[in-house]
Amino acid sequence: MFVSQHTQDNHEIPGTTIFDGEMAMRGYQLNKMCYSFNEAENRDAFLADEDAYCERFGLDEEQRDAIRNRNVLSLIKAGGNVYYLAKFAGIFGLNVQDIGAQQTGMTVDEFKTKLESAGD
């Protein structure tokens, strides 16, 4: 256990991962790779040879599978932080509604309707 116990009641929030020290250590290489996608030439290098790019950043098998499958929930489980994952998703033209739909098992239209209905 890397993280000491808090004094506050930090009960689990359903469907939510708190990106704490433990997750940050778990996902460091994955997030470092996604951070590199700020630069267009790195996005191009990734697209040119995904496996080589993942290898360069030292991703483990679980992370590489999640990248290969473009699976956001798996990426989060493997330590991905959504701020950096958004840069990965952007390579494929996916925005936060697209990844929201994927994570909630909805179509993008259903997900957009859910967002709109929050204003009712």
């Binding site: 929030i13 359903p14 469907g15 939510t16 991962t17 956001v72 929930l73 989060i76 959504v82 994952l85 958004a86 936060v96 990844i99 929201g100 994570q103 909630t104 997900f111 859910k114 967002l115 929050a118 204003g119």
Partner: peptide, 13 residues
């Protein structure tokens, strides 16, 4: 707002 996880799309007006 929440972007990540199964709770993505959470809004609390």
């Amino acid at each position: 707002h929440q972007l990540d996880g199964k709770r993505a799309g959470f809004i609390n007006k």
